[in-house]
Write a protein that binds this DNA or RNA. Sequence first.
DNA 1: TGCGTGACCCAGG
DNA 2: ACCTGGGCCACGC
Length: 108
Amino acid sequence: MRAIPAGETRGYGEVALSAGFPRGARRVARVLGENTDPHLPWHRVLRADGRIALPAGSAAAAEQVARLRAEGVVVEDGRVRAARRPARHALDALLWAPAPPAIIRRPK
DNA sequence: TGCGTGACCCAGG
DNA sequence: ACCTGGGCCACGC
C-alpha cells in the first residue's frame, strides 16, 4: 500500500494481489478498518469501480476525499475519475502474465 | 460446528 | 450506470 505513488489509487483486490493474497480484497478492507497508523496511505485504496468504499457521508469518507484531493486526485460524487486509476486490464495482466508472478486463479 | 456480516469483486442483464 | 446473484475470506457469537 505504501508503494502506491501519491496521486494514484488502487483497488482492494489489486493491493491484496500485490501483497501475495489473490482474492484477498476483503482481507485488505478488514486490515484497513483496524489500522491506526496515520501515515499509512489508506486513502489511495478504492473499490474496483473507483468509488470510495467507506459509507457515503461518513466522517471517514470525507477524510479520504480530503486526502485524495490534497494529492491532486479528482474526486467527484464519491468517485475517482477513471483516468487517475490504472487501466481496467491491469489486474488481468498481472493474473495472466506469461512468466511471473505465477499466480493461479482457482477455477469456478 | 454453524451462520451472519462486511472499507470486496465480477459477470450478467 | 445500476441491480443482482454467486463467490470469496476472516471474524465473532
